[in-house]
């Protein structure tokens, strides 16, 4: 795979330098660790997110007003270190506590948990919400083992708005957990992304094959099949998603159709059109639809569909203003 990089070992550092040049008015880079924080911090509960690199614009792209206050940046597909998380949390803590939000992967859990232990010594109070939106990654009985994918966006959006409103750490955590419990996603993979260091694809698929439910690092999904027309593919994904989420007639949802890297916006809008039609036919209300590339895996081909089942409380937080480089409301 052709990649526009220099030394593969330097990709994360060089990317961060580029990010800082592009967003110097909004972002501040921490000196000793690869962490970025919002320049204009408010006196409120702080939101810290993070994860491995390679999924841009997540997670740095959601640092901004009404969203996350700081991001801990890891190496490619590897969770950030505990001291990175610790320093970011210290930098954004206004004395009202810090909520960690990240996708539920073993490495992220270990590093954020260790950071939380270290922060106890600094008297920084922390809570954690792990995003578990990928319905294919584990059955509902083991929902806490599910992985986090593009649903991160809904969960961080709600958390940021709740913190902005001035709620306590406990209250922000509870509503964020509620947002996670109401977020459901399913993905499909068409082609792999490549790890810059090794140049190896994260998985292999035949040219005419797709994998329904595959994870963003190539974790196996539910079924390999021949490439399908967009409508048929969307029908299959939505059937599984609606079944798993129990979203049904009379409910109301926000939708996110998220591209994984190399699938074009044209294709994503074609998928979105079908999602809208399915929801309409089932009598499921649509509060908002977002079609974007938020959670990518390098040049991976494919997309995910996420639903946030909303009530009046979640709608208010979803609609609240937000301003980050890659998310505005």
């Amino acid at each position: 795979m052709k990649k526009v990089i220099n030394n593969p070992a330097d990709v994360v550092e060089e990317m961060t330098e580029g990010i800082m040049l592009a967003h110097k008015n909004q972002f501040k880079k921490l000196e000793n660790v690869n962490g970025i924080i919002n320049r204009k911090l408010k006196d409120k509960v702080a939101i810290v997110t993070g994860g491995g690199s390679g999924h841009e614009p997540l997670f740095f792209g959601v640092v901004g007003q009404g969203l996350a206050d700081g991001v801990a940046i890891g190496n490619v597909f590897a969770a950030p270190t505990p001291n990175t998380v610790q320093e970011v949390a210290q930098a954004v803590d206004a004395g009202k506590g810090v909520l960690f939000i990240y996708g539920n992967y073993a490495g992220d859990v270990l590093n954020f948990d260790m950071a939380a232990e270290l922060l106890e010594f600094d008297n920084v109070e922390t809570t954690t919400v792990r995003v578990t939106d990928d319905v294919v990654s584990a059955p509902v009985e083991r929902k806490d083992e599910r992985r986090g994918i593009a649903g991160d966006m809904f969960v961080i959006k709600v958390a940021g708005a709740a913190a902005d409103k001035g709620l306590s750490l406990e209250e922000v955590t509870n509503v964020t957990q509620k947002a996670n419990d109401h977020t459901f996603s399913i993905g499909v993979a068409l082609s792999p992304g490549t790890i810059p260091d090794s140049g190896e694809p994260t998985f292999t698929l035949a040219d005419d094959e797709i994998e329904l439910g595959m994870g963003i690092h190539g974790e196996p999904g539910m079924e390999r099949t021949k490439l399908l027309p967009a409508d048929e593919l969307t029908d299959q994904l939505m059937e599984k998603l609606l079944k798993e989420s129990k979203v049904t007639t009379g409910d109301e949802v926000c939708v996110l159709v998220n591209g994984l890297g190399s699938t074009t916006l044209m294709e994503l809008f074609i998928v979105n059109r079908r999602v809208g039609k399915i929801l309409d036919e089932k009598g499921i209300g649509v509060h908002d639809m977002d079609v974007n590339n938020y959670c990518t895996t390098q040049e991976m081909g494919g997309f995910s569909i996420s639903l946030l089942k909303v009530d009046e409380e979640l709608k208010a937080y979803y609609d609240a203003p937000a301003n980050a480089p890659y998310y505005k409301k």
Binding site: G52, G74, N75, F77, A78, A79, P80, T81, P82, N83, T84, A106, G107, L110, N111, M114
Partner: peptide, 12 residues
């Protein structure tokens, strides 16, 4: 190791 590696391996 903890401070440089990241991922699950760094902590473990």
């Amino acid at each position: 190791m903890v401070q440089s590696m990241g991922g699950a391996s760094g902590v473990i």
